[in-house]
Amino acid sequence: MDPIRVFIADDHELVRYALRMLLEDESDIEVVGESPDGEGAVAAVGSEQVDLVLLDLRMPGIGGIEACRLIKEREPDVSVLVLTSFGDDDEVFGVLAAGAGGYILKDTRPELVVQAVRAMAEGQAVFDSKIAARVIAGQPDRGPDPDEELRSRFSDRELEVLQLMAEGMGNKQIAHALWISEATVKTHVSHILRKMGTPDRTQAALVAVRAGLVASPDGDAG
């Protein structure tokens, strides 16, 4: 299996060094480059084979939100995992709207950073628990009866897939759990995103939890 090719963008040299040492100690992860700013990350996804960008938010020049937007415009299949010291609501929602699939804080234990990289490579969404709670709470209501209005759009199977998406499962895991092919899962996910009106699976899952369509990852209903 090919290693997960990671690019690191952070304006602190010590942080970049620590992340490189942490990730390169793993046999299934390869650090293909690093940059002290967002411009370097954007350029890298256009010139190198990159699977995931580990992105700080506050950097000189192009900040993390704009860098994420440009990365996803240039290479939609590249995952963006935000690793930052900051968790302001404007930044959280801004980078999610730009297409980030994960958001963790720098006080996260090192082994959890490695787990997050692997999880995102499998197509899962990864959020620090404090960030996830705020994102779910901050999703706008969709009307007086959002549950029924949204629920009527989906088949029972699509709701099953949506529940597993909300639990952070990737396509392969969902296929195994539901005894269906991975190709069928991809089709269901595509239909869910279209019906939900969201650009990616992360935001679809968050809206679904907020609207009460599926249970939140901790087991509570919407």
Rank of each mutant, 00 (worst) to 15 (best):
R16A: 05
L23K: 04
S27C: 09
L206D: 01
S152H: 14
P76K: 09
R74M: 15
T84S: 01
V32R: 03
H176L: 15
A116M: 06
I65Q: 03
S85F: 15
E158A: 03
V6Q: 00
R157S: 11
E48H: 07
M169N: 14
I174F: 11
L150W: 00
L105P: 06
A9L: 12
G138Y: 12
Q49F: 15
V80F: 11
R109M: 04
V50W: 00
V189A: 05
A175C: 08
D107W: 06
I174P: 01
A221K: 15
F86P: 06
L19P: 01
T84M: 00
P140C: 10
G123S: 09
G46L: 09
V42F: 08
A9H: 08
I131E: 04
V113D: 03
M59H: 08
L22G: 12
E39R: 10
D28C: 14
G168P: 07
R118Q: 11
G64L: 09
L213I: 00
I192H: 01
Q124L: 12
E48N: 07
Q173S: 12
D88Y: 14
R5T: 06
Q163D: 08
P140G: 10
E30N: 11
D2I: 13
V32F: 03
D25S: 06
V209W: 04
E111F: 14
G46N: 04
D56N: 08
G219N: 13
L57G: 08
V80M: 11
A208Q: 03
I29L: 12
R134D: 14
G94C: 10
G170E: 07
I4D: 00
S35T: 13
P36M: 10
A121C: 00
R151W: 09
S152V: 14
A41F: 01
R69D: 01
G40Y: 07
E167C: 15
A125M: 05
D89W: 08
E66Q: 14
V15D: 04
E73I: 15
L55C: 08
A125W: 03
I62A: 09
D107V: 08
L23C: 05
L22C: 11
S155M: 06
G38Y: 00
P110C: 13
G61Q: 06
L22R: 10
D51A: 04
V189G: 00
R142S: 10
A121K: 00
E30C: 15
V92R: 04
K106T: 13
E39C: 13
T108R: 09
A166K: 02
